[in-house]
């Protein structure tokens, strides 16, 4: 199967604002990608020609932004809107092993919907985790370094080498991944056992470190996780912003390849899907 046979849906509502660069990331790899407004899936206020069916796509991406302003807990409003209209097709979509990627606000949405961490089944009725306010209580736009800690369970990262460090910038005010205090230890254990932790924040020496290398104070430096079957991934940093080396923060100090560190994530999922089909 060729990249152009892979259909990708970049979902948006008012306030999503990383959809253009997310679309380009897949497009540059030759995939058949389109921006789809939530209303095109629910059929509200749209002409027939604009209607879309979620099941026609192989990959769903929920990009970053401030969906509906995020005036309540980030991602909560959009999650509620998707849940009310699309929970069954989306659950079906994930059960079938199709790929779902949530970046930044998209990660927050997947957590709010109960698809991540998704330890007990595809979707939990109530969220099992929360992405809460950064320890600095500020919006943090800064370079972050991510160590790949997954054992190849996640279909978005299988092209990466164990322990490989990627530079992927962060830009968020609510990125601290917390679990219910009483269950936290067990959940961390499950995440390890299910091979669900994908990325951890590290410093320039590859060591686990605190602020600012960990921009939000996330316990255990967790930056990105996937569901147990590895086809749903959420991460706070923005791989679509470093598709080219020339948007890295320090590229003028020298580089070996013009390829940016974020590109490999889009390549990985595209390959996985092409292999399966």
């Amino acid at each position: 199967m060729r990249p152009e046979d892979v259909k990708i849906c970049i979902l948006r509502i008012e306030g999503t604002n990383c959809e253009d660069e997310s679309l380009l990331a897949f497009k540059r790899l030759g995939a058949n990608v389109e921006l789809v407004h939530l209303k095109q899936l629910t059929g509200q206020d749209v002409w027939d020609s604009e209607k879309r069916d979620l099941m026609d796509y192989h990959i769903l991406m929920i990009p970053g932004g401030f969906s509906s302003g995020d005036y309540v807990r980030a991602g909560a409003i959009w999650a509620a809107r998707i849940k009310s209209k699309l929970s069954s097709p989306l659950t079906e979509f994930i059960k079938e092993g199709r790929a779902v990627l949530g970046v930044c606000n998209g990660f927050q949405v997947l957590v709010e919907m109960g698809f991540l961490p998704g330890i007990d089944g595809v979707m939990s009725q109530v969220p099992q985790a929360v992405l809460t306010t950064n320890d600095s209580s500020r919006f943090e736009c800064r370079p972050t370094l991510l160590k790949y800690v997954n054992n190849f369970n996640c279909i978005f990262t299988h092209k990466l080498n164990q322990g490989q460090v990627l530079l992927v910038p962060s830009a968020h005010a609510e990125g601290k991944l917390l679990f219910p205090t009483e269950k936290a230890e067990k959940i961390y254990k499950d995440l390890e056992e299910n091979d669900q932790i994908v990325f951890k924040y590290v410093d320039q020496n590859g060591e686990y470190a605190g602020y600012p290398w960990n921009p939000n104070g996330s316990p255990r430096n967790i930056a990105g996780i996937c569901n147990p079957s590895g086809n749903v991934m959420g991460m706070m940093p923005h791989p679509e912003r470093v598709f080219h080396r020339f948007t890295h923060p320090d590229w003028t100090r020298g580089f070996s390849s013009p390829v940016g560190d974020g590109r490999i994530i889009f390549e990985s999922v595209l390959e996985s899907v092409m292999k399966k089909l």
């Binding site: 604002n17 253009d20 660069e21 380009l24 500020r138 919006f139 736009c141 923005h238 679509e240 003028t252």
Partner: peptide, 14 residues
């Protein structure tokens, strides 16, 4: 500067 998103849209070279 770090409170402002200066990289959204993915085109910020410097």
């Amino acid at each position: 500067i770090r409170q402002y998103d200066h990289e959204v849209r993915g085109n910020t070279v410097l």
